[in-house]
Amino acid sequence: MDRQRISRLAHARRPIAAPLSDDSVARLLERAAAGAGGGRALDLGCGEGAWLVRLLAAQPNWRAVGVDLDAAGLTRARESATALGVERRLGLHHLDAREFRSREPFDLVLCVGATHAFGGLLPTLAAARELLAPGGRLLVGEGFWEREPSEAALTALAAAREDHAGLATTTDRVIAAGWTPVDGHVSSQPEWDAYEFSWTGALAEWALEHPEDPDAGAAREAADRHRAQWLHGYRGALGFVTYLLRRD
């Protein structure tokens, strides 16, 4: 089954593809846009455009651009923007985020849960620096080890220990790369659990409701496998931090 379709179905109830509650998302966006009467935002790996649509709905003087390789996700972004009446302020590009270029810099760059598109956190920071206006802000979300991962956790995530560090080391690396955290959020265990139950539940329920679809069996298998990997593998080991950063 196509991985992008799995992701779209799994995020049907929660289009923010990260373990963040609605309140956490709203607070981070409010802080990201604080002090600016208007501006331009860019989401690298925007998926269904949930971050940008919420930003535009809350900030009538902002405009935004989203970049993603998932054409169906971009279609949903347009639909969501149209439903909220913000479609004229949103531009969408079906493009690899690494290839995106702009003549004008952005006041806010977002990359939450999509740093893999650039090969990790530090390359994402370097890419964002080239697109950010002086005084602009970067909202970036990344995983970290809440505790030393077990072999079960590493197997479930198909990860190596060196793929992540603890929160302190991760933050030190961000600072060493020339960025200053001005706000942030560490996802709580209830946020993680709600996200994972929604992810696996939405996918499993779709399979139950569409037994005639050729992908129904694969969808149910993916949901069951993901649930087991989470509960028996990485739950409590993998954390998620969202930084609001400014350049030094």
Results as ranks from 00 to 15, higher is better:
residue 175 I to W: 11
residue 119 G to M: 13
residue 185 H to D: 05
residue 160 A to N: 14
residue 246 R to H: 09
residue 102 S to L: 11
residue 155 T to G: 04
residue 184 G to D: 02
residue 199 W to T: 11
residue 176 A to E: 13
residue 220 R to D: 08
residue 142 E to M: 07
residue 28 L to P: 06
residue 167 L to G: 04
residue 237 A to P: 00
residue 40 R to P: 04
residue 217 G to Q: 12
residue 43 D to E: 10
residue 72 A to Y: 00
residue 181 P to G: 12
residue 162 E to T: 15
residue 15 P to T: 02
residue 227 R to C: 08
residue 85 G to W: 04
residue 19 P to C: 09
residue 239 G to M: 07
residue 95 L to K: 10
residue 98 R to V: 06
residue 227 R to M: 11
residue 91 G to D: 12
residue 225 R to M: 11
residue 81 A to N: 08
residue 78 R to W: 02
residue 213 D to P: 01
residue 33 A to T: 12
residue 187 S to M: 05
residue 218 A to C: 02
residue 162 E to S: 15
residue 213 D to K: 12
residue 94 H to W: 01
residue 94 H to Y: 00
residue 161 R to G: 06
residue 101 R to H: 08
residue 86 V to P: 02
residue 76 R to Q: 15
residue 127 A to M: 05
residue 241 V to D: 02
residue 232 H to N: 14
residue 204 A to P: 02
residue 245 L to I: 08
residue 180 T to V: 13
residue 138 L to Y: 07
residue 143 G to W: 06
residue 68 D to V: 04
residue 227 R to W: 10
residue 222 A to S: 11
residue 239 G to S: 03
residue 91 G to S: 12
residue 129 R to W: 05
residue 147 R to K: 10
residue 74 L to C: 09
residue 163 D to K: 11
residue 61 N to L: 14
residue 49 G to T: 02
residue 170 T to I: 04
residue 126 A to N: 10
residue 56 L to A: 12
residue 64 A to W: 05
residue 89 R to A: 10
residue 116 H to M: 15
residue 3 R to K: 12
residue 62 W to H: 09
residue 246 R to A: 13
residue 232 H to D: 15
residue 102 S to Q: 11
residue 248 D to F: 14
residue 30 E to C: 07
residue 69 L to Q: 11
residue 157 L to C: 13
residue 42 L to I: 05
residue 54 R to E: 13
residue 157 L to M: 15
residue 11 H to V: 00
residue 139 L to N: 05
residue 205 E to N: 05
residue 88 R to T: 07
residue 218 A to P: 04
residue 63 R to D: 10
residue 139 L to A: 08
residue 196 E to K: 10
residue 208 L to Q: 09
residue 137 R to P: 01
residue 12 A to W: 01
residue 77 A to L: 12
residue 138 L to K: 06
residue 34 A to D: 03
residue 88 R to W: 00
residue 30 E to P: 00
residue 106 F to A: 07
residue 182 V to G: 09
residue 186 V to I: 09
residue 4 Q to H: 14
residue 8 R to M: 08
residue 10 A to H: 11
residue 21 S to I: 03
residue 87 E to S: 14
residue 221 E to V: 08
residue 190 P to R: 14
residue 91 G to I: 00
residue 88 R to E: 07
residue 197 F to Y: 14
residue 233 G to W: 11
residue 218 A to R: 15
residue 148 E to M: 07
